[in-house]
Amino acid sequence: MPSEEPRPAPVLRRPPDPADRVIWEPSERWVRGTKGDVTVVDSRRPVLVWEPGRPVPLYAFPREDVRTDLLRETVRPATGRHAGATVFYDLEARGGTVTEAAWTYPGEELAGYIAFAWFGREVLDHWSEEDEEIFVHPRDPHKRADALPSARHVQVGIEGTIVADTRSPVLLFETGLPVRYYLPREDVRLDLFTPSGHRTRCPYKGEATAYWSWSGGGDVPPDIAWSYPDPLPAVGAIGDRVAFYNEAVDLTVDGERLERPASGFIRPRPRPR
């Protein structure tokens, strides 16, 4: 009998993390957090913590790596946040108090660790991993941001007008997000846009300090294009280039019109028929 052809191995996808419990893993990064000129956290043995329902991690630190003399237990903390934590701490530094700036997790696994708030609150002024400042939240070791130069032909259209046309983009592949196409400034019609004062920060790319809004009217969201003049070294290839929200422009790559993705950054608008 003829032998059967070997079957290809199935493609396995990493299962999602459980939605009902805290996930954590140790990190070997040297992490520091400061408030003004005061170092509040200085740890070479933090742990990364993923709370239920949060797509990005937090850091928790051994108690002995934290200036606990600056912490006071919160008298009436809001409950139901941070995976069941009930012990919260106010931070007293630089002559002021930040309420519920830190907390401890229940259970034995993370006993002796203290976590600090990052999201939407300026609890500490600066965080760094080794000697590089990080923003917004700790970097997730299971996610990547790869900036790859390409020879693809990329065109960007807004309201029927071609606003960018290049054959030398840099493609940014960031885990879980749409591919972003960073284009040379000379290939973008920036005269059709108005600079805005909008700024954003990203733990993987750095600070986007240049944004532009479309000047041509129509149902186009503001701050549709942006640039990282001085990105973090890992994605240095995107430096000073211009990217657009795929969700709200018409992208054509190598002659193929791309579908507008759905994401939490901007609500996609259906293309006119």
Results as ranks from 00 to 15, higher is better:
98 V>Y: 12
161 T>V: 15
111 A>T: 04
103 W>Y: 15
257 R>E: 08
261 P>M: 03
211 Y>N: 09
191 D>E: 09
61 F>L: 08
63 R>V: 10
138 P>I: 03
183 L>I: 07
227 S>L: 03
192 L>S: 08
45 R>W: 04
3 S>C: 02
138 P>Y: 11
114 I>N: 07
72 R>P: 00
59 Y>H: 14
52 P>L: 08
269 R>M: 02
265 F>Q: 07
66 V>Y: 04
116 F>D: 01
194 T>S: 14
159 E>W: 01
126 H>W: 05
35 K>P: 02
171 L>F: 04
175 T>V: 02
32 R>F: 04
221 P>W: 07
17 D>V: 01
71 L>Y: 09
153 H>K: 09
24 W>V: 04
194 T>E: 15
205 K>T: 07
233 P>A: 14
88 F>T: 12
93 A>C: 07
256 E>L: 13
216 G>H: 03
272 P>K: 15
217 G>M: 06
106 P>V: 07
39 T>V: 13
152 R>G: 01
10 P>A: 13
131 D>I: 02
97 T>W: 08
261 P>E: 10
40 V>I: 14
188 V>T: 03
41 V>Q: 08
14 R>I: 06
211 Y>W: 11
84 G>E: 10
131 D>Y: 04
144 R>D: 10
109 E>P: 00
147 A>G: 06
109 E>L: 02
67 R>C: 09
134 I>T: 13
20 D>P: 00
179 V>W: 00
219 D>L: 13
266 I>T: 14
184 P>Y: 06
87 V>N: 12
132 E>N: 05
161 T>E: 14
270 P>S: 13
253 V>T: 06
12 L>M: 14
118 W>D: 12
72 R>C: 03
243 A>R: 00
39 T>M: 06
137 H>G: 09
8 P>N: 12
46 P>R: 11
266 I>P: 01
264 G>T: 07
68 T>A: 12
52 P>T: 12
195 P>H: 14
268 P>H: 11
38 V>K: 10
14 R>E: 05
207 E>R: 11
185 R>G: 00
201 R>N: 11
180 R>A: 01
137 H>D: 05
58 L>A: 15
57 P>C: 04
255 G>H: 02
38 V>S: 08
6 P>H: 14
226 W>G: 12
193 F>S: 03
237 A>V: 01
100 E>H: 10
124 L>W: 03
51 E>W: 01
211 Y>C: 05
238 I>T: 03
228 Y>C: 06
102 A>V: 10
94 R>I: 05
46 P>Q: 08
166 T>P: 00
55 P>K: 10
122 E>K: 15
122 E>T: 13
59 Y>S: 11
147 A>R: 02
